[in-house]
């Protein structure tokens, strides 16, 4: 199992959120939006703007700065 930051994944890639290395406030927000550790996400879009991930078909956009701090196990 390798872990990579969310920003390094390609569209179509799937993985499980392993760890979020952001501040408590941002981490809690991510958790509450459904992006908590153990959740499987699929990358929908990752080019210039915020990264869009899909959680069972529901899309969430995460700014690149924060996406760098979300570690995904592939």
């Amino acid at each position: 199992m390798k872990t990579k930051a969310l920003t390094h994944l390609k569209p179509g890639d799937r993985g499980v959120i392993k760890e979020i290395v952001a501040g408590n406030c941002a981490t809690k927000r991510l958790y509450e939006m459904g992006l908590n550790t153990g959740t499987e996400v699929k990358v929908v879009k990752n080019d210039t703007g915020p990264v869009i991930v899909s959680l069972f078909g529901n899309k969430i956009a995460v700014g690149r700065g924060l996406a760098e701090k979300i570690m995904i196990a592939i």
Binding site: A22, A26, R29, L30, M33, L35, P50, I52, N58, K59, I60, A61, V62, G63, G65, L66
Partner: peptide, 11 residues
């Protein structure tokens, strides 16, 4: 710092 950006994209 600018704050983080998290937003839902509803269907």
């Amino acid at each position: 710092e600018t704050s983080y950006f998290i937003m839902e994209l509803p269907p």
